[in-house]
Simulated assay, not measured.
Amino acid sequence: MKIAVLGSTGQTGRLLVTQALARGHEVIALARTPARLSDLATGALRVVRADTNEPSTVLAALEGADVVVSGLGITKKQDPSVLVDGARLLASAAPRVVWLSSLGLGATEGALGKVNGALLKRVLRHEWDAKGVAGRAVNSAGGTVVYAGPLTNKPYEGGGRLVSAGTFKPRMMPPMAPRAGVATLMLNEAEDARFAGEDVITLFGHR
């Protein structure tokens, strides 16, 4: 497959790139600063300067891609409209999208219970509404929105799975999510489209 990665220079995005290459896919890495991926030079990787603030650059980069996986995120200093614009752009132009979001937001609001949900809303108020809008845009185009709990850099030892958001029972403590495992599950979904058009949650371990 030819997989395009949006947000490719972030911690999760970079894992999406390296894991997709390891699986033997061709990869188009969309980056505002392509030099940040210079150490990954390989014939199967094409790094393209692209910015959601410049839609034409993203559209050109997506040409020929079979699917787009997005690890796009923002800092508190960035305008959250970046998320909305990016999701809408992919929804309108990409053949299929696998989009990363945060557990407790958007379609999974309430998944962490009332108390933790309210706390999460205070912590993530900067991007709360934007992530909800972005997720709906991806869903409407038949894409998969992957909701992950707090991301960690712990090694991924397998055992991860995606579950439909509708089957997830609210819990007080959010399920932690190793970035490498999240990337693995997103690429699995990119390959088999098992949850196309759905909201799913990452789970790791036996719970």
Rank of each mutant, 00 (worst) to 15 (best):
K2A: 08
K2F: 00
I3N: 06
I3T: 15
A4T: 10
L6A: 12
L15V: 08
V17Y: 01
V17N: 01
L21C: 09
H25S: 06
H25D: 15
E26Y: 00
V27Q: 10
I28E: 02
T33Y: 02
T33E: 10
P34E: 07
R36C: 02
L37C: 06
D39C: 01
A41F: 01
A41Y: 00
A44L: 04
V47Y: 04
V47G: 05
V48T: 12
A50W: 07
T52G: 00
E54G: 03
S56D: 15
S56R: 13
V58I: 11
A65V: 15
A65K: 09
D66C: 04
V68K: 02
V69F: 05
S81F: 12
S81H: 13
V84T: 15
D85S: 14
L89K: 09
L89G: 10
L89D: 12
S92F: 04
V98A: 03
L103F: 06
G104T: 11
L105K: 11
A107G: 12
A107S: 14
G110Y: 15
L112K: 08
G113Y: 03
G113T: 12
V115T: 15
V115D: 15
V115S: 10
R122E: 09
V123I: 14
L124D: 08
H126C: 03
H126S: 09
E127Y: 00
A130V: 08
G135E: 15
R136G: 05
A137C: 11
A137N: 05
S140R: 15
S140I: 07
A141S: 13
T144Y: 02
V146E: 08
V146L: 10
P150Q: 11
L151W: 03
G160M: 11
L162N: 06
S164R: 14
A165R: 11
F168S: 01
F168E: 12
M176Q: 12
A177M: 06
A177E: 01
P178A: 06
R179S: 03
R179P: 01
G181S: 11
V182E: 03
V182N: 02
L185F: 13
M186I: 10
N188Q: 14
E191F: 02
E191V: 06
A193C: 06
R194C: 08
A196K: 06
D199N: 15
D199L: 00
D199V: 00
I201C: 12
L203P: 10
F204Q: 01
H206Q: 15
